[in-house]
Simulated scan of single mutants.
Amino acid sequence: MVSLDRFDTFKAVVEAGSLTAAADLLGQTRAVVSFNIKRLEAELGVTLLTRNTRRLALTEAGERFYLHCLSMLEAAQLAIDEARSEHTELKGTLRITTTVEYALAKVVPALELFRDLHRDLKVHLSTSSTHADLISERFDVALRLGRVVDSSHRAVQLSTFDILPVATPAFVASVAPIDSVHALEQTPWLEHGRVGELSITHVGRATTQPYQPNPARARIKADNSSVLRAFALTGQGVAILPDWLIEDDLRTGRLIHLLPEWQLTRQGVYALYPDTRHLPLKVRVFIDFMKHQS
C-alpha cells in the first residue's frame, strides 16, 4: 500500500521545483526525499518526474497523479481535522426543525443530554406541522417522520416506530365488534392528513394485505398526531397514532390498542440535511447522537 507520506513528499517536490528545495521545506535530507520519490514511482509502476541537471519536470502520468494527490491529501487532512475535533466543544448555532409532538416526546429530552456534551453550541429548535424549507429558512437539519419524499436533500434514517390503531373503551363499546381487519376498516376513524398508503401484517401468520379504511367513515381529518390523539380521547373514533405518543394512554387504559395481533407499516424517523459536499461537523455529531438515542 502506498504511504500518504510519499504523496506529501511528491507534492512538496512538485511545488518546490527541486529535491533540495523540497528537502528544506520538509526538514529532511535530499537523500531521503529522493528515496521516497523513487519508492513511490516503484510502487505505482510509472515515472512521475524526469530529471536533468537543471530541473525536474512532470511526466504526463505525473501531472495526472499530482491532481489526484492534491485531492487525496485534502480529504485526508479533513478527516484528521474532524476526528481531532470530536473531543473539542462545538460552537455556533444548530438549527433544527421537527413536529411539535416529536419534539416534546423525543427531541427535548435528547437535547438536554446533547447540550451537556456541547455547552458552547447553541440550539434553535423550530416546531411545525408543515415541512420547512431547509434552504430558504436556513435549517441545518430536519427530523421527519414517516417516509421521505424530498429527494433534493440527503437523508439518514435514525430509527423506526410502530403506529397503532387505538380508541377509547367507551367508543369500542358503542360500535360493532372490532374483531377483524375488515371490521376495523369499517369503523368510524380519524384521518391523519400526511399518512400515506399502509399495509397491515398478521404477526403470527406473516400475511400482509393493504389497509384501506372506508373513506366515508372518516369523521375528522387533521395534520397533527397530538390533535388526533385529543379527538380519540374524547371518543370520536379510531386514530392511528405513534406508539411513543400514546404509551401513557395505553398503560392507564385511556386508549385501547385494537387488533394487537396485526401490525401496520412501520414508520421511519429521518434526519434530512441540505445536499452539500462537506457535512458540517455540528450536523454530523447531532445525527450520530440521535442515532444512539433511538
Rank of each mutant, 00 (worst) to 15 (best):
G27S: 09
R95I: 06
G146S: 05
D150T: 13
H192Q: 13
R219A: 06
L111F: 05
L250I: 03
N224Q: 06
E43L: 11
L104T: 04
P165I: 07
Y211K: 00
V195D: 15
T168V: 05
L198P: 00
R6A: 05
E261L: 05
S199A: 14
V181Y: 01
L184T: 00
L125A: 08
L26H: 09
R51F: 10
R254P: 05
A105W: 03
H68T: 01
E191N: 09
W189D: 13
G62W: 10
P280G: 02
F35M: 14
I37S: 03
I220P: 03
R64A: 08
Y273T: 04
T168R: 03
E137W: 03
N224T: 15
V32L: 02
W244Y: 15
P260S: 05
I37T: 03
G17M: 07
Q157G: 00
S199R: 12
G17R: 00
V123L: 13
R147E: 15
L145D: 03
P274S: 02
L58E: 07
D179L: 06
T97E: 01
V166A: 01
V203N: 05
L90F: 00
A222H: 14
N224G: 08
K291H: 06
L250G: 03
A23K: 07
W189M: 11
R144C: 01
Q28T: 12
A216M: 13
T9F: 06
T130L: 13
E60W: 00
E74A: 13
R284M: 07
R254Y: 11
D223F: 02
S174A: 15
R205C: 00
V46N: 08
R95M: 05
E247N: 06
L94N: 02
R219K: 11
D5S: 08
Q209Y: 02
A12Y: 06
T98I: 08
R51G: 04
Q236D: 08
T97Q: 02
Q77F: 10
A271F: 04
E137A: 08
V141Q: 02
G204V: 10
Y102I: 01
D288S: 13
K221L: 04
E86T: 11
S34R: 12
I287C: 07
N36K: 14
L158V: 15
D275S: 09
A271P: 08
L67G: 00
T88N: 11
T207C: 01
P177T: 09
N214I: 10
C69K: 06
T234N: 09
W244H: 11
S71L: 15
T47A: 06
R154Y: 03
S294A: 15
A57R: 10
M72A: 15
R54S: 14
R119L: 01
L40A: 04
P109V: 14
E82A: 02
F10A: 04
E86R: 14
V14T: 08
S129T: 12
V33G: 06
L113E: 08
R144P: 00
S126H: 14
L164G: 06
A167G: 09
D120M: 11
Y66L: 12
A23E: 09
T93L: 02
P242G: 09
A142Y: 02
L250R: 04
G27Y: 05
S180W: 11
V100K: 11
L117G: 00
F35N: 12
R266K: 15
R55V: 12
A170E: 15
S180T: 14
L190P: 04
A216V: 14
R30L: 03
T20N: 07
P274T: 05
